[in-house]
């Protein structure tokens, strides 16, 4: 937070509204840095919802049953919807939809690096729903109380839809964990690969997180990265126990004094390598987005042409009637 002497009267009034838990709406006065921070965060969140469809799309045609396929399809459609809610929220701040989308296609925009890991087996779809959507929910629930109204309202809708995502993933894990030894091994392998990236999703440790203090003062963020990570670990370890699967962390232990689980050190070098484009799938994800954009061009063109044709016909009818 900037200190009192450098704060303008407007900034002070703004901060007072935030402190009083008043919500900020798009046309209200806001500091430029608040606007920029939100555009960055909301657009990155939107991109993550969008790119999040790609690793799951990989298994859509090979889902083991029709019911699983229908459920996965519904989840993927939800993620597209989440992207839409969030792009709309960013637009209320003056961001251009086309520009955000261009930044995503060019690779300039960041998205959650969790989606740069490959989905090697069907069990990965279970692990993603259980862990990745689970971590996303942990992040998103406090965002429902974010100080910026449109973001908070979008998060309320998103959170309502997310719990089905996590349950369908957990159910896949449950079936595999109670199945044949090969199926159980598949579930364990997926957990081995997804555990560390999932807990890294909460971002760098509190000491190293550069935007945190200001975002907390503005009530964009309500809890620190480490707090949210801890919350997720505490919820998830007993679920893994229930599945009869082992969390791949030799240092994991329960601290009876604090009532919390303690994990071993997270490999932040790996995390940053993936963020900076060295993940296994960064290039694939980029190519898939470009392909979808290019192959969908005729649909957008046809819709535009159809709308123009009908508008022209309506105008002609109006003139004829006059």
């Amino acid at each position: 937070m900037s200190n009192a002497s450098s704060q303008s009267a407007e900034e002070a009034r703004f901060q007072a509204r935030i402190d009083a838990e008043d919500k900020i709406e798009p046309k209200d006065w806001m500091p430029e840095a608040y606007r920029r921070t939100l555009i960055r965060q909301i657009s990155q969140h939107a991109h993550s919802e969008y790119v999040g469809m790609l690793p799951e799309g990989n298994w859509l045609t090979r889902a083991p049953t029709l019911r699983r396929k229908a459920a996965l399809m519904a989840k993927i459609q939800d993620e597209a919807g989440h992207g839409l809610y969030l792009y709309s929220a960013a637009e209320t701040l003056g961001a251009s939809r086309d520009e955000m989308y261009r930044d995503l296609l060019s690779g300039k925009a960041k998205y959650s690096s969790i989606f740069n890991y490959p989905t090697l087996t069907w069990a990965d779809i279970g692990a993603i729903g259980w862990l990745v959507d689970g971590a996303a929910i942990t992040n998103q629930v406090p965002l429902c109380r974010c100080s910026f109204g449109p973001y908070a309202r979008a998060m309320v809708r998103v959170c309502k839809e997310e719990s089905f995502h996590q349950r369908q993933g957990f159910q896949i894990m449950l079936s595999l964990a109670h199945g044949e030894p090969e199926q159980k091994a598949m579930a364990q392998d997926a957990l081995n690969r997804w555990w560390w990236p999932s807990i890294a999703m909460f971002g760098p440790p509190d000491g190293e997180s550069k935007h945190s203090a200001q975002s907390m003062a503005w009530k964009i963020k309500r809890h620190s990265n480490d707090e949210l990570r801890q919350r997720f670990v505490d919820m998830t370890v007993p679920q893994a126990d229930f599945l009869g699967l082992r969390i791949p962390d030799d240092d994991l232990k329960f601290n009876a004094d604090t009532g919390h689980y303690e994990t071993g050190p997270i490999d932040w070098d790996d995390f940053w390598a993936v963020v900076n484009g060295e993940g296994q799938c960064n290039t694939d994800r980029l190519a898939a987005r470009q392909k979808a954009h290019d192959e969908g061009a005729w649909v957008r063109d046809a819709a535009t042409a159809y709308a123009a044709k009908r508008a022209a016909r309506k105008a002609a009818e109006r003139i004829a009637a006059e």
Partner: peptide
């Protein structure tokens, strides 16, 4: 009010709104 979307005309906006905002 539940949100917004982009569409080339009113009829397509209505169809997109149905798909995006009334899935359940």
């Amino acid at each position: 009010h539940c949100g917004s979307l982009r569409a080339p005309d009113a009829e397509m906006a209505l169809m997109n709104a149905r798909d995006a905002y009334t899935r359940r």
